[in-house]
């Protein structure tokens, strides 16, 4: 048995951050990277959310109502939401404060929030 030399740092490059996401989400991310198409963000955000979801949702997240609550309906705890936010920060090069994190309660909150942050980033 070989015990490989593990990477001693958690994934920090974008390639490493998205390598666990399904292929359509990775393709959407490439599309967003290439053209800054904000519509391409949604599948990426939902894929990150699914990746950290404590339960496998029977219904794909994209088909759930926007008002679906992350904690009450999807079983997230506050730390898992923080992990989603951190992953989004790394991937989209945005910055979200603790005060802003607690405002994120539903799927639409998360989507809208990241859209605004990314737009701000492009203006800035």
């Amino acid at each position: 048995m070989k015990t490989p030399a593990p990477s001693l740092t958690a994934p920090t490059t974008r390639e490493q951050s998205i390598r666990h996401l399904p292929a359509p989400a990775r393709a959407a991310f490439e599309q967003f990277q290439a053209g800054g198409d904000p519509a391409a963000l949604d599948p990426v955000v939902l894929a990150i959310l699914a990746d950290f979801s404590p339960r496998r949702s029977a219904v794909p997240l994209a088909e759930l109502p926007g008002a679906t609550k992350l904690i009450d309906d999807l079983g997230f705890d506050s730390l898992a939401i923080t992990e989603v936010v951190f992953a989004a920060e790394d991937l989209f090069r945005i910055s979200i404060t603790n005060e802003e994190i607690v405002q994120v309660r539903t799927l639409d909150d998360l989507r809208g929030f990241i859209q605004i942050k990314v737009a701000d980033r492009r203006v800035a």
Binding site: P6, S7, L8, A10, T12, L79, T82, E83, F86, D90
Partner: peptide, 23 residues
């Protein structure tokens, strides 16, 4: 030590700006 090394390496790399919440 495996997990702690990774967690601290990330903190050093980002000069304290990032850390795995479950680290």
């Amino acid at each position: 030590p495996f997990m702690l090394g990774s967690f601290l390496a990330q903190m050093h790399e980002t000069r304290g700006e990032r850390g795995n919440p479950m680290g």
